[in-house]
Amino acid sequence: MTEIDVNKLANAKAKGKRPYFFDDPAVERVLSITMAVATELAVTRERLDTVERLLEAGEPVTKANIDAYRPDDDASKDRQQWHADYISRILRIVHQELEAVENESLNEDPEKLADDFAAA
Protein backbone atom coordinates (compact mmCIF):
# COMPACT_ATOMS: atom_id res chain seq x y z
CA MET A 1 0.00 0.00 0.00
CA THR A 2 1.21 3.48 -0.72
CA GLU A 3 3.16 5.52 1.80
CA ILE A 4 1.62 8.66 0.35
CA ASP A 5 -1.70 9.89 1.70
CA VAL A 6 -2.96 11.51 -1.48
CA ASN A 7 -6.12 13.01 0.01
CA LYS A 8 -4.10 14.59 2.78
CA LEU A 9 -1.70 16.01 0.20
CA ALA A 10 -4.54 17.31 -2.00
CA ASN A 11 -6.17 19.10 0.91
CA ALA A 12 -2.92 20.28 2.46
CA LYS A 13 -2.34 23.96 3.01
CA ALA A 14 0.25 25.31 0.61
CA LYS A 15 3.38 26.35 2.52
CA GLY A 16 3.33 30.13 2.93
CA LYS A 17 0.92 32.42 4.79
CA ARG A 18 -2.47 32.43 3.07
CA PRO A 19 -3.72 35.89 2.07
CA TYR A 20 -7.21 36.93 3.21
CA PHE A 21 -8.90 39.57 1.08
CA PHE A 22 -11.97 40.52 3.10
CA ASP A 23 -11.99 42.48 6.33
CA ASP A 24 -13.58 39.49 8.05
CA PRO A 25 -11.72 36.16 7.55
CA ALA A 26 -15.02 34.32 7.99
CA VAL A 27 -16.18 35.74 4.63
CA GLU A 28 -13.10 34.29 2.98
CA ARG A 29 -13.77 30.93 4.59
CA VAL A 30 -17.38 30.83 3.44
CA LEU A 31 -16.54 31.87 -0.12
CA SER A 32 -13.79 29.26 -0.34
CA ILE A 33 -16.15 26.55 0.93
CA THR A 34 -18.82 27.75 -1.53
CA MET A 35 -16.46 27.39 -4.49
CA ALA A 36 -15.51 23.87 -3.34
CA VAL A 37 -19.20 22.93 -3.01
CA ALA A 38 -19.91 24.46 -6.43
CA THR A 39 -17.17 22.24 -7.88
CA GLU A 40 -18.63 19.08 -6.34
CA LEU A 41 -22.13 19.95 -7.59
CA ALA A 42 -20.73 20.44 -11.10
CA VAL A 43 -19.10 16.99 -10.84
CA THR A 44 -22.41 15.42 -9.80
CA ARG A 45 -24.29 17.28 -12.57
CA GLU A 46 -21.85 15.99 -15.16
CA ARG A 47 -22.25 12.43 -13.89
CA LEU A 48 -26.00 12.83 -14.28
CA ASP A 49 -25.46 14.15 -17.80
CA THR A 50 -23.46 11.01 -18.58
CA VAL A 51 -26.26 8.83 -17.20
CA GLU A 52 -28.79 10.64 -19.41
CA ARG A 53 -26.62 10.24 -22.48
CA LEU A 54 -26.13 6.51 -21.80
CA LEU A 55 -29.90 6.08 -21.39
CA GLU A 56 -30.59 7.95 -24.62
CA ALA A 57 -28.11 5.75 -26.43
CA GLY A 58 -29.78 2.65 -24.99
CA GLU A 59 -26.61 1.65 -23.10
CA PRO A 60 -26.79 -0.08 -19.72
CA VAL A 61 -26.25 2.43 -16.93
CA THR A 62 -23.45 0.73 -15.03
CA LYS A 63 -20.62 2.26 -13.04
CA ALA A 64 -18.20 0.82 -15.59
CA ASN A 65 -20.08 2.42 -18.50
CA ILE A 66 -20.23 5.76 -16.71
CA ASP A 67 -16.49 5.73 -16.07
CA ALA A 68 -15.74 4.62 -19.61
CA TYR A 69 -17.93 7.34 -21.17
CA ARG A 70 -16.05 9.81 -23.37
CA PRO A 71 -18.00 12.87 -24.54
CA ASP A 72 -17.83 13.62 -28.26
CA ASP A 73 -17.15 17.17 -29.48
CA ASP A 74 -20.81 18.21 -29.28
CA ALA A 75 -21.22 16.84 -25.75
CA SER A 76 -17.97 18.56 -24.68
CA LYS A 77 -19.23 21.88 -26.06
CA ASP A 78 -22.57 21.44 -24.30
CA ARG A 79 -20.78 20.78 -21.03
CA GLN A 80 -18.50 23.80 -21.37
CA GLN A 81 -21.50 25.98 -22.09
CA TRP A 82 -23.26 24.52 -19.04
CA HIS A 83 -20.20 25.41 -16.93
CA ALA A 84 -20.23 29.00 -18.20
CA ASP A 85 -23.96 29.39 -17.53
CA TYR A 86 -23.70 27.72 -14.14
CA ILE A 87 -20.80 29.94 -13.04
CA SER A 88 -22.78 33.00 -14.16
CA ARG A 89 -25.72 31.87 -12.04
CA ILE A 90 -23.55 31.30 -8.98
CA LEU A 91 -21.66 34.57 -9.35
CA ARG A 92 -24.77 36.59 -10.20
CA ILE A 93 -24.29 39.09 -7.37
CA VAL A 94 -20.73 39.75 -8.52
CA HIS A 95 -21.93 40.35 -12.07
CA GLN A 96 -24.68 42.61 -10.78
CA GLU A 97 -22.16 44.74 -8.92
CA LEU A 98 -20.31 45.12 -12.19
CA GLU A 99 -23.47 46.18 -14.02
CA ALA A 100 -23.87 48.91 -11.45
CA VAL A 101 -20.32 50.11 -12.15
CA GLU A 102 -20.99 50.14 -15.89
CA ASN A 103 -24.35 51.86 -15.65
CA GLU A 104 -24.79 54.56 -13.02
CA SER A 105 -28.54 54.81 -13.73
CA LEU A 106 -28.99 51.44 -12.00
CA ASN A 107 -27.89 52.97 -8.72
CA GLU A 108 -30.76 55.23 -7.68
CA ASP A 109 -31.10 55.12 -3.90
CA PRO A 110 -34.60 53.82 -2.90
CA GLU A 111 -34.43 55.71 0.44
CA LYS A 112 -33.85 58.97 -1.37
CA LEU A 113 -36.53 58.19 -3.95
CA ALA A 114 -39.01 57.41 -1.16
CA ASP A 115 -38.41 60.88 0.22
CA ASP A 116 -38.58 62.42 -3.27
CA PHE A 117 -41.92 60.79 -4.11
CA ALA A 118 -43.37 61.65 -0.71
CA ALA A 119 -42.84 65.28 -1.58
CA ALA A 120 -43.63 65.16 -5.30
Partner: peptide, 25 residues
Protein backbone atom coordinates in the same frame (compact mmCIF):
# COMPACT_ATOMS: atom_id res chain seq x y z
CA UNK B 1 -15.48 43.67 -6.18
CA UNK B 2 -11.70 43.35 -6.28
CA UNK B 3 -11.72 41.56 -2.91
CA UNK B 4 -14.20 39.02 -4.28
CA UNK B 5 -12.17 38.66 -7.48
CA UNK B 6 -8.92 37.92 -5.62
CA UNK B 7 -10.65 35.63 -3.13
CA UNK B 8 -12.29 33.53 -5.87
CA UNK B 9 -9.03 33.48 -7.80
CA UNK B 10 -7.16 32.15 -4.77
CA UNK B 11 -9.85 29.54 -4.09
CA UNK B 12 -9.77 28.49 -7.77
CA UNK B 13 -5.99 28.12 -7.65
CA UNK B 14 -6.17 25.87 -4.60
CA UNK B 15 -9.06 23.82 -6.03
CA UNK B 16 -7.19 23.39 -9.32
CA UNK B 17 -4.25 21.65 -7.63
CA UNK B 18 -6.64 19.62 -5.48
CA UNK B 19 -8.56 18.45 -8.58
CA UNK B 20 -5.33 16.99 -9.98
CA UNK B 21 -4.06 15.55 -6.72
CA UNK B 22 -7.24 13.70 -5.59
CA UNK B 23 -7.15 11.60 -8.70
CA UNK B 24 -3.71 10.15 -7.93
CA UNK B 25 -5.24 8.29 -5.00
Amino acid sequence: FYQAHLSIQRAAQELMWASVTYSLD
